[in-house]
Amino acid sequence: MSKRYEVRLAGSGGQGLVLGGVILAEAASIFDGKNATQSQSYGPESRGGASKSEVIISEGEIDYPKATHIDLLLLMTEAAAEKYLKDVPETALVVADLDLVPTAIPDKLRSVKIPITRLARETVGKEFVANIVALGALQELTGIVSFESLKKAVLARVPKGTEELNLKALSVGQEAAREYDGKNIPH
């Protein structure tokens, strides 16, 4: 069995986390040549309320497509933090929106808080690209997909006419995460 890398993107409906998961998985599978699956919460739960998107990435065949041992957790709402911090393993990296997740992340976890939504709104100019800002940050922090592949995956999925905006969002996320450089991630 190959090592699985499990990602959970959690927040609320409208934050674009399902699309975010699809883009991440496409970057890994179509453009990086690995295997990836993406699944999501679905139905009444996904309308307005909580939203969850899971991505499993592996060099080998992916059997069980749901997360069992999270490696990377993105939290975009306080409710998501309450729900998903409980069972996240100590080896996981937690990335949270600085403004939207006031809860302190437990010290035993490696975690980073980035003003993802604020950056999308103020630096990029559109709040709806927060998911892409987040992807830029996640890529920078983990390298689980290559930046080039992520860029291609973003361009393949976003609506025509928004390419520039989304590429900017990706860079803004990447830069915001750069100060942590993957090693100095605070506990």
């Binding site: 599978s29 295997n35 990836a36 679905y42 497509p65």
Partner: peptide, 10 residues
């Protein structure tokens, strides 16, 4: 099943 219907894969 719903998992197969909604999960995405290459």
């Amino acid at each position: 099943d719903e998992i197969t219907a909604h999960m995405r894969e290459k």
